[in-house]
Nucleic acid binder design. Structure first.
Lengths: 180, 180
DNA sequence: TATGACATGTAACTAGTTACATGATTCA
DNA sequence: TGAATCATGTAACTAGTTACATGTCATA
């Protein structure tokens, strides 16, 4: 029941896995699908990293194998220690705000290329945002939202993505117009 | 004059350094100050990583030592090969969109804690955004913008930060209201 | 029977973090 | 002369990426 000591503030993949297993037991393969789909807009993870982390989580006693299936399938479930660690992270650890926005980094340096290239770049950012906006609208419309926690908080994340896309598109349009 | 071969799409720190040195020659220490200040909202870098990367850039011929000063200070300048690499990155390499938003990741899992804790968390995201909004407004007002490239593109980046902060604050206020 | 989806794993690498270590110069 | 700032570097680590490697099961 007691939380494993852990002074590190990072390791969000670890907590992403714990959070998904809190919903219900899953295999590494199942988790991978989640990271490739819904999760990909929020936290990226590769197959290799995922299986590695599952091993570490099991060794740390935060998850355990709950059932084995065909083809070597191992379904993991979260343990009480894992749940404690997840809650601790959600409540006590302040989010680390290490910012890395490659698209925006380029904008700083657009003076190094011809104005036409700069405008093209900004317009392509706008196009990308527009496409993303459309995809998220479609996704939202296709989901039958309920009033359970997963729906409420899932919708919040989706709403964030939609608002972000709109903001990015509008900014890119404005910025392209600023290029002389 | 010809670009160094480089199939990797990442290495943005490398390009951030090249972009800053394109403005004018600087030492590692100067660059560090830039990364700690204006740059910190776009691309984070530690002192250790910076000096390591400067060594690699020099070895690759993309920068060279232009002047030495007291206390072992080494001022670097960008070479023609470095400028070519910077332009190549700006124009030809599409931005990699690996998303990792720790604050948003938590929102997915807020169902694991009491609604009051969840609301507190969302409100704290709103507060953070509001403070950031204020800081960026102040910064904008304090800068004497010109119509040179550095001003035009610097203002674009700042404008993005302001719009992002507004979006994040409004979303967080809405989201906090969604918690039952 | 062959293809594709299911399923897990490892090796070698690059990027990024934390902590330590050292010394020079300025200025109160 | 002591503290702050300037200035560079290294060692040990964690996180993340790419590529490879292997084998199972369902079904067309």
């Amino acid at each position: 029941m007691s939380r494993v000591e852990c002074q590190d503030e990072g390791m969000s993949l670890r907590h992403a896995i714990l959070g998904l297993l809190e919903e219900h037991p899953m295999s590494g393969y199942d988790l991978l699908k989640r990271f490739e789909q819904a999760m990909s807009n929020v936290w990226a993870a590769t197959q290799s990293q995922l299986y590695g982390e599952l091993g570490k989580l099991e060794a740390a006693g935060l998850i355990r194998v709950h059932a084995e299936g065909p083809r070597g399938r191992k379904e993991y479930e979260i343990t009480d220690a894992g749940r404690a660690e997840l809650r601790h992270w959600l409540v006590d650890v302040e989010p680390n705000r290490v910012t890395r926005n490659e698209a925006l980094l380029r904008v700083y340096f657009l003076g190094a290329v011809a104005p036409e290239r700069a405008r093209e770049y900004l317009e392509s950012l706008g196009d990308t945002a527009r496409r993303r906006e459309g995809r998220l609208e479609d996704l939202d419309a296709s989901i039958d939202w309920g009033d359970d926690d997963a729906s409420v908080y899932g919708r919040m994340v989706l709403e964030w993505g939609k608002r972000f896309s709109v903001m990015q598109r509008e900014w890119a349009e404005w910025a392209a117009g600023q290029v002389k």
